[in-house]
Amino acid sequence: MQILRSLLFRLASTAVTLVGVAVIVFFVIRVVPGDPIAMMLPPGATEEDIARLTALYGLDKSIPEQFFIWAGGVLQGDFGTSITARRPVLDLVLGRLPATLELSIMALVIAVILGGVAALTGTRERGTKVEAGIDVANGMALSVPDFLWALILILLFGVAWPVFHISGRVTPSLDLPFVTNFYLFESLLRLRFDLWADIVSHMFMPALALAIPLAAIIGQLLKQSLKETMHLDYVTLSRTKGYGENHVIIREALPNAILPTLTLVGVQFTFLIGGTVIIERLFSYEGLGNMAIDAVINRDLPLIQGIVILFAVIFTVVNLVVDLTYALLNPRLRHA
């Protein structure tokens, strides 16, 4: 009952957040310089042409008026029509969303594996040179931003030792049988491992570039909370019961140490989705981020609005999921 009530409260506050985001983005992109109509018309267009096109897109109305027209459409599932692509924004955005989600989730999985292994190894070998080495590697991974990792990876595995594809999402010459845009998952479900391998080979470097800084954060925080937990009485006590080091770390300390890391991963995951914008550009990966950059360059106002709203929805959903997981994993909160 308690959980249901707090869930309803969260959903309500999420709705308020989304309205706020919608208002801000709508007004800001109309106030900053840049005219979408000017981008569309060839040089030498007449005043009349400009006025006609401006009226066609409703840009001659006042900004609040435009907002209410747009917001009314959104409430009915109509996010408007892209100025450049001349297709419904919702179709465009939902078509690209799977690519970005797959990339982000793959990056998250890589980050959790790398960070987790680093933290557990560092805890097991605490006080030794191994731990010092892990700390140095963590520091490096953290201080170099993801787009620089992308360039390093391209140089290493795309140019010097070309084992991975450096651009796109899938080799264009391949025949794709997919009905959804979740290529990675669908190729697995269809047992088309040849296609799956090709897709992974395209995704691996962008995902790794996104994952490295996050892995360092996870590794550092998890190792720190593991270390604190390792000093607690019940951990010491489990040694006196005769448990070995691996059991003590993984079964006694880890489940309690992991909670702060989980919250952090939730927050960082939203940053990671933000990071896809530049990473997708670097790898010409056909996701939302790449589309967002094009939309901004072309002053495609409806498309920018749609993408930002979608990002906001993703952020709030991810945070909600993290909070719920947190409650499920912590018996004290579950019964509170």
Binding site: D233, Y234, T240, G242
Partner: peptide, 18 residues
């Protein structure tokens, strides 16, 4: 280890809360 056991001062912190 089974043969020599220990009980701690703080019973809360010596029981794994999970």
């Amino acid at each position: 280890r089974r043969r020599f056991q220990m009980i701690f001062q703080d019973p809360m912190s010596s029981l794994n809360p999970r």
